[in-house]
Design a protein around this nucleic acid. Structure first.
Lengths: 343, 343
DNA sequence: GATTTGAATGTTAGCGCTAACATTTGTAGT
DNA sequence: ACTACAAATGTTAGCGCTAACATTCAAATC
């Protein structure tokens, strides 16, 4: 009765939500005026804007972002690719990114590669179909085809976490130097039998870089730089198990340089459980600077990376670029050796 | 030369990426055939599909998801609204969701409310503009206007974390019962002076429900149920500070029931630092069941909630519904009291 | 009052894709 | 060969919005 039923034989479904046209009709203006009242309120007269706002409220209009994006050829999506969410580091980076993106009205699209470069390429290819405004991905190494694709991406692109030859912009730290710094610290403390304990280094190549830095220092002191590696994700329990295995394999070990604070904390607590004195019987060092690592007794010696800052800085590089400014293209966020009593 | 320059006076920019038409021309078929070859490969002849695939590779076609969504009135987006990413609980829920969504080709849109219901409404309204396939949000309480909007949302909707009167579907646990369970445990251990320590309970009302459960048990034993509350986010250091404040204010305190494992762990470690014996001088209980809480010495008594499972189950409810099955509408994931030596 | 000018609003034509219907092609049965 | 019918492909018309251009309107100037 209310609708001229059947009308044109060919009707599309839609969710029959109210559209711009409905608002326009209600407000007695044209659709484009409604669009302007929403997006650039200064470009319409105040009286018009008020009429439009009332009409929007009355019909319960929710803008269709998909149509807007298609028409304007630019979404407000920014995909963010990280290798893992199990690692707090990336969660904090994401929080930094999100805080800034939120403020500027951009929507993050989260992609998790689980440290697989194939998955990274797959994710990015899909995301490109959403006309993203910019792109954030982790690391400087990609599959060859992806690198090519990224080079052709005509919008801001930030590669985070490490430093080096970036496609576009870059925020991170020098992992090799971080590994070397910790090695120096351990050497300065007088330790000579130092084992590096890592997990999945083939995938987590940034951790492998830390080992490289560590190794080069030990070698240059004429020392061995043994590596113990586990093919599973870092975990507290694994840290405890690692302590045992390492002491069995290298009975004279004096210090263990762990891949991260999770493993190191697990080892530290296991040492206490076994009545080992830390650092006298065994010194333990981590990497990341997690809050609870500083709460442990003894406090864990670790390297603190400004994780949320990486996210914020990356987001700001993008926003700056989008707003026509010239951000620093490569930002070294640095790191800090945080001495605890565990070494 | 190659392009009829100027042609129509009115030309839109676009990113001039190759389109379906370009692929169609290259393959010598129509656009819709290409579309079908991509989305329902079984509906075209094998020879055609191969021609199309070759053409896609040749022109470097990337499907425009925005146009596809507009035309089909359904994206493959599923917004997920959580109150915080600082709390590991939600990170794990998200991982559960993501694992299942990934498998089925849905893209999560992450929204973070920071425990604000205004922000929740704002986020959901925006997300609705993306024609989402389904929706996941945290908690059963929403602003009034939002509840109305959700009731009218014609697609699968899951409210996670707690149990009760849901708009559509629901996965979670009974927080009041969890609080009561821990209170019972503490009472059974013989503690009579028990303090509940919480943070931002007005926002985090699920934690407030745990306190309610705790309180009702203590009251029914004729005991006081004092509450200490801090207006900041849970944190290790705050746990330590809380221990001090509580012992100052309630010198006879025997046990502290903390809002979560982070606070509890901070207190546990601070107790050790001060030479207090746990649980003899002070018993400490948490909530969540974080991995490292079990690594501490003594191990923390806590309540373990199946966090990743909540995510997985919610995602499966959605997928089931989308695929025409009839999932359980309300799933109680339960919880487990995990006894450590801290109580 | 006629003219200029900038601000406010309107008209038109797509953005790139897919639903719905239409047509052609292939395959079997008689 | 001739229908019968399904499978494969094509044609057409939008999805709801905004860019680009066109027009109208109001205030300012002569």
């Amino acid at each position: 009765m209310s609708e001229p039923q059947g009308g044109d034989r060919r009707r599309r479904k839609g969710l029959d939500n109210p559209t711009l046209d409905d608002v326009a009709r209600e407000a007695g203006v044209s659709a484009i005026t409604v669009s302007r009242a929403i997006h650039r309120p200064d470009s319409v007269r105040e009286a018009t804007r008020e009429k439009v706002e009332a009409a929007i409220a009355k019909v319960g209009y929710v803008p269709n972002m998909v149509a807007g994006t298609l028409a304007s050829a630019s979404s407000r999506f920014i995909p963010v690719i990280v290798p893992s969410l199990s690692n707090v580091v990336f969660v904090e980076v994401i929080q930094g990114l999100q805080a800034v993106f939120d403020q500027h009205g951009y929507q993050m699209l989260l992609g998790n590669t689980d440290y697989s470069m194939e998955r990274e390429e797959e994710l990015i290819r899909t995301f490109l179909g959403w006309s993203p405004t910019a792109l954030v991905t982790t690391g400087l190494r990609h599959r060859e085809g992806l690198s090519e694709l990224l080079k052709r991406f005509p919008r801001p692109l930030v590669e985070i976490m490490e430093l080096g030859q970036a496609v576009d912009m870059n925020v991170g730290m020098d992992h090799q130097r971080a590994g070397a710094t910790m090695a120096d610290h351990l050497l300065a403390q007088g330790y000579r039998h130092i084992v590096f304990a890592g997990t999945r280094l083939a995938h987590n190549y940034r951790a492998a870089q830390r080992y490289e830095g560590h190794r080069s220092r030990l070698i240059s002191e004429g020392l061995d730089a043994p590596l113990m590696e586990w093919q599973q994700d870092s975990h507290y329990d694994l840290g405890g198990a690692a302590l045992d295995e390492i002491r069995r394999q290298y009975p004279q070990v004096e210090a263990i340089h762990f891949i991260d604070d999770v493993m190191a904390s697990g080892a530290l607590l296991e040492a206490q459980r076994q009545g080992l004195r830390v650092p006298d019987d065994i010194a333990i060092a981590g990497f990341t600077g997690l809050p609870f690592a500083r709460a442990l007794i003894p406090r864990l010696t670790t390297i603190v990376s400004p994780r949320e800052a990486i996210g914020r800085l990356a987001a700001h590089q993008i926003i700056d670029r989008l707003e026509g400014r010239q951000p620093e293209a490569c930002i070294d966020v640095g790191f800090t050796l945080q001495r605890g009593e565990s070494t």
